[in-house]
Design a protein around this nucleic acid. Structure first.
Lengths: 158, 158
DNA sequence: TGCGGGACATTATACTATAACATTCAAGGG
DNA sequence: CCCTTGAATGTTATAGTATAATGTCCCGCA
């Protein structure tokens, strides 16, 4: 992950989410908003039970459905993606664009860089058409080493 | 999934696995081989505990490590892939080629068609390079409706 | 013969996710 | 104003996925 002004980065996404939520008349409740804020704190993927722990500490309840319901909502709205490879969740960096997310997952520090590939890569679309398969969503997950971790023990990405 | 001679399909993959295993001097033990056979029975993804049940019925033991150890081996050797989206496993249809697997996952019948995309799609490689990220493996998972299920209640794919 | 390593057995436990049902509360129609 | 309705949340229980840790067996080899 390239260094960046993370405060800006959070604010930008949060504002966009706020805007989209009110526009779509969906209910951006405190627990949902706070869950998104927590996920935005870093670009690392966070497990559901990690999020739950944070939500609990902040007074939102301690039972699994608290976290999973917030996550379900945020994913439906496209504010959060699940990184299947890690069974963990990250805030979407492009909440304003329709896209098929692609993740660069660092196996060392678990940071997750999201880059969008076009809705679905052309090669895959071709294959799918040939097989008579109708793609509804797709995701790409690549595992490897991020720049910081490759630079030998460099500070973990933020 | 297009109709095909599944007997041939199984034999072909099993032979190739056998060949590769002896070539690489790895130990293709009965439980490992049988696990692969079970996964080859259909192109649907099978959960670890489903595989475990089958292995148990066939006399290979009933504890989770039985299944997970066999799966770990088969994945290391590239004979089996994990479909993260389903927490389930499928036999690889291209055990003789190095590839980044791409899955077309039917949300209705859970059939999984594997198609290989080149080691990593060009667009993603470009993004990764720009971010200083070194990709080690990647996978693409697309969800949708397979031909059989799209043809309204058609027989589930085999 | 002894040793080293891979495979397997066994027990226990950690982690991930959802089902099912009760409660609350706000918006809208009669 | 009251009632209905539905979304959001609270609460309890349980299902499903995966690994840790330790010990045993057996085979190849010095």
């Amino acid at each position: 992950m390239r260094p960046h002004d993370h405060g800006d980065c959070i604010r930008r996404v949060l504002d966009e989410a706020e805007r989209r939520a009110s526009e779509d008349r969906v209910n951006f409740t405190p627990v949902r908003r706070h869950a998104l804020e927590i996920l935005l704190e870093s670009h690392a993927a966070m497990p559901a039970y990690g999020l739950l722990k944070r939500l609990d500490e902040d007074g939102f309840g301690s039972q699994p459905p608290v976290a999973y319901r917030a996550l379900d909502f945020l994913m439906e709205q496209g504010f959060v993606h699940k990184v299947e490879r890690l069974n963990a969740f990250v805030a979407c960096m492009y909440p304003d664009e329709s896209h098929a997310p692609a993740f660069l997952i660092c196996r060392n520090c678990r940071s997750v860089a999201e880059t969008c590939v076009s809705p679905s890569p052309a090669a895959l679309l071709r294959e799918a058409r040939a097989a008579g398969f109708a793609i509804e969503r797709s995701v790409m997950e690549a595992e490897g080493l991020c720049r910081a971790c490759a630079e030998e023990g460099g500070a973990p990405c933020r």
